[in-house]
Computed example of a mutant assay.
Amino acid sequence: MPVHREHRGRVMLLTIDRPERRNSLDHATLNALSSGLRDAAADREVRAVVLTATGERAFSAGLDLKAVAEAGMPDPAASPLHLLRDGYPLPVLAAINGPALGGGFELALACDLRVAAEHAYFALPEVSLGIAATEGGTDLPQRLPLAVALEVGLTGDRLTASRAYELGLVNRVVPGPEVLTTTVALAERIAEHSPAAVRTTKDLMYRSIETDRATLRARAREATDRLLAGPDVVEGMAAFAGKRAPRWAAPAAS
């Protein structure tokens, strides 16, 4: 299997396992990632997802060009990037165990939080192939200063993990052996909280960077009303008053 699944408590771990191809993304891998993400969203026990890959040579070298030459371009509609960039409900964290190039960089960008190994780096080499990184790479100005994003996109040069951290693109930079444990611990920290509140917070934070203020305020009020009418706020208050851990209700399947 090109992608392995593992449940670690309330966290689902999806691991790309193609080290011989630098964890590049062929049709089977993309389909397996999409299937894993859909199943995680439908599982009422899963509160967060961690994406990573096998080995230290690469998080992902991007689209498997050999596979493309043999079988053609993958169907964009089946790509996990579309799931992640189109309102995916669960928090998704990338444990970036090595270089993330092209589509691998875009996969990391589509995640909500990123933890990178010290030796990792990021690059968009698409311009050297006569194409553009339109599956998330061209959205870099939303994450980086425009001049930096243009340099990354127009030169194809590397952005080191340390520089990405300085620019706010990466949440943590740690030694390679600590990448997965650090990321899972961060996911578990998120999973401790109200699933409804976490999903609402994620949704509204993304909307805040693409929506006018009046619409955002209206959506925030609607979301607050929904949360106040749900069971988690009652449980959260009771747990706080009782000095105990909250017992959150399992969210409805997505």
Rank of each mutant, 00 (worst) to 15 (best):
F59K: 00
V234H: 13
S79L: 02
A149Q: 06
G102V: 00
L216N: 10
P99Y: 10
A117N: 12
V173S: 10
R143K: 15
V68A: 03
L83K: 01
E126V: 07
F240M: 03
Y88S: 05
A61C: 05
E188S: 09
R38Y: 06
A239I: 08
E70V: 00
V11F: 03
A48P: 14
A185L: 11
G136S: 01
K243D: 14
H27K: 02
E126W: 01
P195M: 02
I190G: 02
K243S: 15
E135I: 00
R18I: 01
A32P: 03
A48M: 14
A40L: 06
R172C: 09
L51E: 12
S79K: 02
R18S: 03
G168L: 02
L30E: 02
R213K: 11
T29V: 05
A249N: 10
A241D: 12
L33I: 03
R219Y: 09
T52H: 14
H193T: 09
S24H: 09
L93V: 15
D212F: 10
T138F: 05
G102A: 05
R213A: 15
R172H: 14
L216T: 08
A78N: 00
V68D: 01
L83F: 04
E126G: 11
V234D: 11
G137M: 00
I131Y: 00
D86Y: 11
S254T: 09
A191V: 07
A28M: 06
V233K: 08
A69I: 01
L146F: 10
G98R: 00
N23Q: 09
A120R: 10
R8Y: 06
V49G: 12
P175V: 08
S162T: 15
T215S: 15
R57S: 12
V179R: 04
P91T: 05
G153T: 08
I96W: 06
T160R: 04
L14A: 03
H82K: 07
V198D: 11
V11I: 15
D39I: 01
A239H: 13
N171L: 10
T211D: 13
R247S: 13
A78V: 00
R21A: 15
M12W: 13
R47T: 13
L81G: 05
A67K: 02
K66F: 13
T183V: 11
D39A: 12
R158L: 05
A41M: 07
T181R: 13
A161N: 11
R85Y: 09
I131L: 11
W248L: 07
G36C: 00
V92K: 10
D203M: 12
L124E: 12
S60N: 02
H4K: 08
A241P: 06
V115L: 14
T182R: 04
R199P: 08
L186K: 04
L65I: 11
